[in-house]
Amino acid sequence: MIAIPPPFDLLPTLWRGVGVTVQLTLFGSALAFGVALIIGFGRLSRFRLIRLLATVYMELFRGTTLLVQLFWAYFVLPHFGVEFTEMQIGVLVLGLNYGAYGSEIVRGSILAVPNTQIEAGIALNMSPWQIMRRIILPQALLMMLPPFGNLLIELLKGTALVSMITLADLTFQGTLMRVSTLRSLEIFSLVLIIYFLLAYPLTLALRLFERKMAEGRS
């Protein structure tokens, strides 16, 4: 076997963490999207109680901060007899937390569809459900995409926090190797570069999409 020259000899170990980071991002954002839709619609509900519950959820999960929630799930939940794997905790907390932020996007986009569109639907005698499904949602979903893209990038960056509950993601592999090799400069330079390579293509794709959308409108 050929020895890989430094600093690239560190890559195979770090690579194992990348898999965990990508998994967390995918599952976490899927859960976050679902939560965002439920809470976002909940905050627009006709029923006061549902609106209240959704708002409390949003404020609670945005206010108590991601890392505290991770610690709470990791250290406190077992006392209630609830046992999750670190991976499950990571996905769950990321999804619930970023879903709370996403609910604002859902709510904002739906409210951003002009009232006159609803009136046009009424004038064509559509049912409230038809107006939501055929007129408001298609327009709102398109508006949601760019901010959800930004949230996805934030979530990808947020996955680094799971290293604090010993889930072996990219950052965790970095801290492990720092202890064993003390080559901090090489390790964390590589870690940052890998995160950049994961996140930046998303940023570029998002900008391309936004430009396309702006063209489509004019």
């Binding site: 990038i153 960056k157 947020g158 996955t159 680094a160 926090l161 290293s163 604090m164 990219l170 950052t171 970095g174 801290t175 720092r178 080559r183 901090s184 400069l185 390790i187 964390f188 330079s189 870690v191 940052l192 995160y195 950049f196 996140a199 930046y200 940023t203």
Partner: peptide
């Protein structure tokens, strides 16, 4: 700006605290 925004704060903190002295 692009680089810092695309990488996690936590990894940046590790870099500043552990890697910067080795520069």
């Amino acid at each position: 700006v692009e680089f810092i925004r695309s990488t996690p704060l936590l990894a940046q903190l590790f870099f500043i605290f552990y890697a910067l002295p080795q520069l």
